[in-house]
Amino acid sequence: MSKIIKEVQESLINLKRVKPLVHCITNYITANDCANAILAVGGSPAMADAIEEVEQMATQAQALVLNLGTIANELVDAMIKAGKAANKAGVPVVFDPVGVGATNYRKESTFRLLKEVKFSVIRGNMAEIKVLCGMESNSKGVDSVEDVKEDAAKDIARELAKKLNTVVAITGVIDYISDGERVITIRNGNEMLTRVTGTGCMTTALIGAYLGGGSSPLHCAVAGVATMGMVGEIAFDNLKENQGSGSFRVSLIDGMYNLKEADFQNVGKINE
């Protein structure tokens, strides 16, 4: 068994032992799915975004998840307040810069957050991560239409992780996760994941749940991304005739609930 497989298995053990409170400031489109994903793997979600309470909630939690999906000025202010409080309390923070390249407002808000808050993990698709690198990117709304060769993708993940002193997780057909030194690739997943809204947001929430268990940010990022890819494969294989994206969505949560340590070895396509 490889070193990284053992590390992600330990992350799942820690998550289920701690049962962390995961504070999410996320978008209204996927909040319910993110909460259910956290519950399914063994965490406890708190979906609090009122600016009057986010600091207190963030310091009570074991992890904080910030998602840029449906933003407004007050929500960005709330994210910064929560992020600063979490940083001061030693609570790990994961950031999802949804659609950062789609509008100037999203880009300005993202770089404001990067300036004000220290993130343990940043997860995005290739188009989003390229924007954070200051590179030209191709997107359609909040979706990436990038096609980057594997070696170049690894370099992008590694260099941004070094630049921001964080773990960077790039999700797509192949996933790339780096802490600036190590680079992990994951080849799990199914095309049906693109037919259900919020699977990226749920992946970020899963990373937050693993972070709440106390494992290292790199291990938690790999565990969260691999979890979504693996349950995506399992959910698709379990579809019956005439079942589609609605049944698939429910089956994703079932897969998270039934996730076992052995799945990372038996189903996971995780390599370093």
Rank of each mutant, 00 (worst) to 15 (best):
K84T: 03
V100G: 09
R158P: 11
S245I: 08
N266H: 15
G180V: 11
R195Q: 13
Y176Q: 07
T110S: 06
E272D: 15
D147A: 09
M230V: 01
C220P: 00
S247Q: 14
L66N: 13
E150R: 06
K260F: 03
K3H: 09
V121C: 04
E241D: 11
R123A: 12
A31W: 11
I207K: 06
V41L: 09
T194A: 12
T70F: 13
I170G: 04
D237T: 00
L12D: 01
N188M: 05
L164R: 06
E233K: 01
L68N: 08
A40C: 02
L206W: 00
L66R: 06
N36L: 02
Q9G: 04
A85Q: 07
A82F: 05
L132N: 01
H219G: 03
N87R: 07
R195G: 14
G255M: 13
K115I: 13
F264I: 07
A46K: 00
G255S: 01
I174S: 15
S11W: 06
F248P: 01
E272R: 01
K19E: 08
S2T: 14
E136M: 10
E7G: 05
M256D: 02
G255D: 14
K19T: 12
G213A: 06
N104Y: 15
M57L: 14
G212R: 05
T204S: 14
F95V: 00
K88L: 07
K115W: 10
L75Y: 11
M228E: 09
K163D: 07
L259R: 06
I170P: 00
A48W: 10
I207V: 14
V173F: 14
G99L: 10
K88W: 10
Y28P: 08
N87C: 04
G198P: 05
E108V: 13
K84L: 08
N190D: 11
V173I: 15
L206R: 02
L68Y: 14
R17M: 01
C24G: 06
M228N: 03
I156T: 09
P45T: 08
F111K: 00
L252E: 08
I5P: 00
I129H: 02
F248Q: 04
V231M: 04
D77H: 06
I156K: 07
K81S: 07
G69L: 03
A48F: 05
I122P: 15
L193T: 13
Q265A: 09
P97K: 08
Q243E: 10
R106W: 05
S215E: 15
A169S: 01
A58G: 03
I71D: 09
G198Q: 07
G141F: 14
V8T: 12
I80V: 11
L68R: 03
I186F: 08
L259N: 12
P92S: 02
V250Y: 15
V65W: 02
L193K: 09
T227P: 12
T110H: 00
K88A: 12
V131M: 12
